[in-house]
Design a protein around this nucleic acid. Structure first.
Lengths: 173, 173
DNA sequence: CGATCTTAGTTGTACCGACAACCAAACGTC
DNA sequence: GACGTTTGGTTGTCGGTACAACTAAGATCG
C-alpha cells in the first residue's frame, strides 16, 4: 500500500462514466455508418482524408501512422488492403530509400467524396446537433485540455480530418 | 445526389477533430495501464466492476452485455477467460434455465481492489486533473446530450463503473 | 398439448490489430 | 570506408471481436 487513493467524487464519477460511455459508443457508430455506406472503417476514412489533405496528396507512411495514431505494422496492413482496392498507391521515397510514400488515387478521392456527405450527416446527427454553440466551444476547450495530456505532441489534431470544402477533395467532387 | 451537404463550420470541425482524437486515444491509455498493472483490459475491468456492484455480486449475461456495450458472443468469450482465471463463476439461472448468471469471486474482488487505485490514478492524471470544476460539469452535460442520441436507453450509464467507496469492493478491500 | 416463434447463450469462422522478428537503408564513429 | 546503431517498413503469429450458425428453453397460440 502506498498512499491512500483519492477516490472519485460523485461529480467526477458521473462525468467519467459518461465520458467512458461516449468513448465506447462513438467509434462503433462511426464505423457502422461508414462500413455500411462506403465500405470503409473510420480509421481508413481518416487515413484517406489525411492523404487527400496532404501536399501532392502524398505522405510518408511513418507520418501517416503518427497522424492516425496507428502503429506502423497496422498502417502497413491497412495500406496493403487500400492499395489492393486501388484507393492508394505506394512507392519508395526518392529522398530516403528506406521510406515509402503513400498517395491517394483518383478512385480514392472519388470514394471519399461519395462517403463524406453521409459521414458528415452522421457526425451531425450523433453529436453536433445535440450541442449548443456554447457547448461546442466548451467541448473544444475540454478536449484540448485532455489532449494536452494524452497527446502532448498534438499528433492527432494536426490533421483536419474533415471536408469543410478542403482543397484536395473539392477537386474530386 | 440528394440535398447539398451541410459541411462543418470551422468551430464544428475543430471541436470534432479533438473529440475524435480523444475517443481514439483514451481507450488505449486505459487499456495500457490496466493491462500492465493488473492484466485486465478496460472492458474486463468494467465487467468485473459491474458484477461487484450488482446485488449478490451476480448478474445475467444478457444484462451484463447490455451494460458494457458488448455483443453476447463477445461477453461469452470474455467470461470464459475470466472464469478460467478464477475471477468469475458462471452457473445456470434457477428462474430461467436458458439464462446464465455470472458472479464475481473473492479473487475477482481482490484483483479489482488491487487494480482500482492505479486505475483511478490514471483517470485523474489523464483526464480529471486537466479540468476545472466548471469544465467537469460541462463535460457531464455535453456527454449527456450526446449519449441521449447514441445510447437513448441509457444502457451504459446505468453502471457506476467506479469505486468511490462502493459497498461490494469495500468488503473485499 | 403440439407447432411455432422468440429469447439466452455457446461455438466456429473470418478478419483486424498488437507484438515480435526481420530486412534494408541511413547515420555516427573511428 | 568498415562497423555498430538507429530508423523505416514489411511480414508472420497470436489474441480478441464480429458475424453466423447452432442448441436449448421459455412464450404464444391454435
Amino acid at each position: 500500500m502506498t498512499t491512500d487513493t483519492a477516490w472519485l467524487s460523485t461529480e467526477e464519477s458521473a462525468a467519467w462514466v459518461r465520458l467512458i460511455a461516449l468513448a465506447e459508443l462513438l467509434p462503433g457508430a462511426l464505423d457502422a455508418q461508414l462500413l455500411r455506406d462506403a465500405g470503409l472503417t473510420h480509421f481508413e476514412y481518416v487515413a484517406l482524408m489525411s492523404l487527400a489533405d496532404a501536399p501532392s496528396r502524398t505522405m510518408r507512411m511513418t507520418e501517416l501512422a503518427s497522424r492516425t495514431n496507428a502503429t506502423l505494422p497496422r498502417l502497413s496492413h491497412v495500406a496493403r488492403r487500400l492499395e489492393a482496392r486501388g484507393l492508394i498507391r505506394r512507392f519508395p521515397c526518392p529522398e530516403d530509400r528506406r521510406a515509402t510514400n503513400a498517395t491517394i488515387t483518383d478512385a480514392g478521392l472519388e470514394l471519399l467524396a461519395d462517403a463524406a456527405p453521409g459521414h458528415v450527416e452522421t457526425v451531425r446527427a450523433s453529436v453536433l446537433d445535440a450541442l449548443t454553440p456554447a457547448q461546442l466551444e466548451q467541448l473544444y476547450d475540454i478536449a484540448g485540455a485532455v489532449l494536452a495530456r494524452l497527446d502532448p505532441e498534438q499528433r492527432l489534431t494536426a490533421t483536419s480530418c474533415q471536408f469543410s470544402e478542403g482543397p484536395a477533395v473539392a477537386r474530386a467532387g
